[in-house]
Amino acid sequence: MRNAALFTAAAFLLTAPLPPGVAKEPAPTGSAAEPGDAEVAARSEALEVAGAFSNDGFKIRDGHWVDGIAVNKPKIIQVNLFAGNQYWFIAAASEKAKKIAVSIFNEKGEPLLSEPYSNARQSAAGFAPETSGPYYVQVEETEGEPATFCFLYSYK
């Protein structure tokens, strides 16, 4: 039953318009693709990773962030986490990116150890905070051309 709900939620995420507050992606420069194709591709890739974590009981938050990304121009988002929960922060980029990385920082900006997962244009960081409060997640492109990425997270 949970998986059926996951399927419904994932299908909704793929077809729904961007939620409020979500940064719109810039159109990929020089792309012959239809506007939005890069976004759909990035969201699909991110959901593919998140879907696998869902098999372990992680709930995907019904929100995502789509934006442009380029090498040496990382994007950072603030999240607020609770001690005791476990999180996976997931990012995936459209085809122009070759490799991306996700890193987690505490509220002072200090890097934290996390469980890494990286498969070219898909990357994730697993983390179980010991302290509740604000954290920062950085998504960076380490190889490739300017692209579109999608970020989301799941928790349990």
Binding site: E48, F53, F58, Q86, E115, Y117, G126
Partner: peptide, 11 residues
């Protein structure tokens, strides 16, 4: 480690 979710498996 304590900063690692247990049991989660990537795809």
């Amino acid at each position: 480690s304590s900063a690692t979710p247990a049991s989660a498996q990537p795809p």
